[in-house]
Amino acid sequence: MADDNPEINPAEPGASHNEARRTFLKQSSLLTAMTFTPGPIVQAAAAQFDEKVAAAFEKVPLKLEVNGVKHKLSVEPRTTLLDLLREQLHLTGTKKGCDYGQCGACTVHVDGNRINSCLTLAVMQEGRKITTIEGLANGDNLHPMQEAFVKHDGFQCGYCTPGQIMSAVACIREGHAGSEGEIREFMSGNICRCGAYSNIVAAIQEVKNGGQKV
């Protein structure tokens, strides 16, 4: 990464430039190939050649740790942390419920703090430690919050659940689970359209009152 010296950053300077470059590449590769190759191969060749070049220009290196696993990646700067987790690392437990930071389904922990992974770029998390729902259990042993969600039926369709659980764990760690009212306020960033709120609060209260380490 080209800290302090933007000019040597390997990333391409922008869309219009990319588009012009791509048009040029596509046309030139087509022109050279067209005279002696059947149509489908021309297309495939143009596409592949182009993609490789484009990829080299458009991606930047990224190192981060997810659920204790270190990753060395190459990503487009515009890739959000959420899309990186779901589409590239196949950690689909983190959910996309709105993509605008308005529902909390994408909640993960970054260096222990809960955030909405849809509103941060993956490259901004260089060197950080990410924990997702897949990293919460200890092997086959569920995290106490996961156990409590099952016991209190803190979900219905299950789609907001990973975000609720990540948020619930943080809610206790932050010291925001002191009363039912406080839990409801500090869980309000996680929408459950099925409306399992009462049960989620019961699960959090049980874990909080049980005094287990979260």
């Binding site: 996309k96 729902i133 099952v150 039926d153």
Partner: peptide, 17 residues
Amino acid sequence: NRVDGRQKVTGAATYSA
């Protein structure tokens, strides 16, 4: 308890996308 509770709380439940 729900039979698919474990899948839902661990992120293992797989949705359409």
